[in-house]
Amino acid sequence: MRPVDVVEGVRAYLDAVDAGTREIVSPCPGAANLRDVVELAMEKKIRRKGRLGSGVEYSIHGVGCLFVGVNGAEADVDVDFFDDGARVFDVWRLSMFFETSGGGISPGSERIQESCAELIDRGVLQSRGRWYTADIS
Rank of each mutant, 00 (worst) to 15 (best):
S59F: 07
S59P: 02
I60F: 13
I60E: 15
H61M: 11
G62Y: 14
V63A: 11
V63Y: 03
V63H: 09
G64M: 09
G64I: 02
C65D: 13
C65V: 15
C65G: 04
L66R: 13
L66C: 14
L66W: 01
V68S: 14
V68W: 00
G69D: 14
V70M: 04
N71E: 12
N71P: 02
G72F: 01
A73W: 06
A73G: 11
E74V: 11
E74Y: 04
A75K: 03
D76T: 03
D76S: 05
V77G: 01
D78H: 02
D78F: 00
V79S: 01
V79P: 00
V79D: 01
V79T: 09
F81K: 06
F81N: 04
F81Y: 11
D83V: 01
D83L: 06
D83Y: 03
D84A: 02
G85W: 10
A86L: 03
A86V: 10
R87Y: 00
R87M: 14
V88W: 05
V88P: 02
V88D: 00
F89D: 01
D90T: 06
D90Y: 02
D90A: 07
V91C: 10
W92R: 13
R93W: 06
R93T: 12
R93V: 09
R93I: 04
R93E: 11
L94G: 04
S95C: 04
M96T: 10
F98M: 10
F98A: 04
F98W: 13
E99G: 12
E99N: 00
T100E: 03
T100F: 15
T100P: 11
S101T: 14
G103S: 06
G103Y: 12
G104P: 01
I105L: 10
S106E: 07
S106H: 14
S106F: 05
S106L: 15
P107V: 08
G108H: 12
S109N: 13
S109M: 08
S109G: 15
E110T: 06
E110I: 08
E110V: 12
E110F: 07
E110W: 10
R111Q: 12
R111V: 08
R111C: 04
I112S: 14
I112T: 04
I112F: 08
Q113I: 03
Q113L: 13
E114I: 08
E114T: 03
S115C: 14
C116A: 14
C116M: 14
C116F: 13
A117I: 05
E118A: 07
E118I: 13
E118R: 10
L119T: 06
I120K: 15
I120D: 09
